[in-house]
Amino acid sequence: MNDLTRDLKQSFHDKEYRHGYVDDFLDMSIATQIKVLREQRSWTQADLAKAAGMLQPRISAMENVNYSSWSIKILRRIAESLDLTLKVSFESFGDRIRDIDYFSRKNLEKCSFKDDPYFKEQVKDDLLIKAQRFLDVPEQRKLPNLIYLVHDRDRNEKQTVKESFPGSMYNNNNNRQPRVEDLRKANL
């Protein structure tokens, strides 16, 4: 536990204090996150305003930490324009202290759908299964390297072509374990 967390844990026993603190933190974190997300995409305020169907001065006002007139409707529009989902939830003060502790640019940045690693992984798995359907079992064992080659091209990353060898599904330093169910699916 760091000094800030320890201090807050003590100070938050005062109800007025803790509500004043977290209300202000909420306004500041939303404003800051809008700016961080915009900059992550290398967008100007005008770009975001255009995508969200608003005027640039409004974006400028919302990126200011002194803005507090938030509405869920407006935040939804911002979220959609950034291709993100808005999450609104009630939280305990303990959870809020963790948010305060993790307040950083890195933690405020979020990927749009097209860059979301969760869905990139899905695309890779789908490609693997589709390719396996056209090959017999010995050939399937050579597939993983082929799939990663396609995936690397998508990301425009440096190509590393590796030798395939039987008996290993994922042998390319990705720390992925062989997934037997993929092979089973392909054999159906």
Binding site: L4, S11, D14, K15, E16, Y17, R18, H19, G20, Y21, V22, D23, D24, F25, M28, A31, T32, K35, V36, E63, N64, V65, N66, Y67, I100, F103, S104, R105
Partner: peptide
């Protein structure tokens, strides 16, 4: 107390700000 909470939050954020993350305003 509420105002003191607000003031402390702003100072805490300032203290935790990264060089590339000084919240606007």
């Amino acid at each position: 107390s509420r105002d003191r909470g607000k003031l402390d939050n702003r100072i805490d954020i300032l203290e935790r700000a990264e060089p590339n993350l000084l919240p606007p305003g």
